[in-house]
Amino acid sequence: MSVSGEKRALWGLTDIVVIALALVPVVWIVSLSLKTPATLTDGAFFPQHPSFINYRGIFHTTLFTRSFLNSIGIAVITTVVSVILAAMAAYAVARLDFRGKQLLVGASLVVAIFPLISLVSPIFKLWLRLHLYDTWPGLILPYLTFSLPLAIYTLSAFFREIPWELEQAAQMDGATPFQAFVRVIAPLAAPGVFTTAILVFIFAWNEFLFAISLTSTDAARTVPAALAFFTGSSQFEQPTGSIAAAAVVVTIPIVLLVLVFQRRIVAGLTAGAVKG
């Protein structure tokens, strides 16, 4: 078994290299966030005297807390609405026969590759006129538009795998259509819906171009946009520590999602790719 042991060691080493490459920038921003203003510029990879002073700083300003709330609210609402609309369309795509299906799929592909920059200024002008500029709906609407293709695509890939005959079988056994849906189909569809929700959430949480273009105050500015305009917890302070701390705080939800739902995210990202 010495060959196997050697092989295991080799794989273990490879694993460690890949994991290290994936995590170094994350560890770096965490260490930066734990440095005190005095040691910030010491150039060391790890903080010499870890301190939470930067975290205390950002949670004392509405600049960060407000944008954090905006981010959560906008991402959650986008996710819920997008998944509902996409589930309806994906059900039709996966299960019903209708003219224009190819057109729908083709059109959503076009939306998926749309260069966002081509749309920001018209939307900006339109939003000013419709009083949507610098509001939650003003960001949620474009986020819906650009998450729907991904959501429809992923969900229809999942829906195609559901054995829909079970629904009829349940009704044959005396279940009402509603019971058949809730007890049989919904549990089968739930993993796909959930996976799609995670991907949409990550998209909305991440978005930057619209976030800086369609907001101007902390009424709707999300964290990525706020980070770009950060000035530090006080006017006279270098914002590096604050940016690092804020960056870490908004990364925590993503890390949790990844740790808990690793398998689902992989399944979602690869759902349609194979059939391609």
Partner: peptide, 8 residues
Amino acid sequence: LIPYGIIT
């Protein structure tokens, strides 16, 4: 998945 999920 961390680089994939982290905010750009």
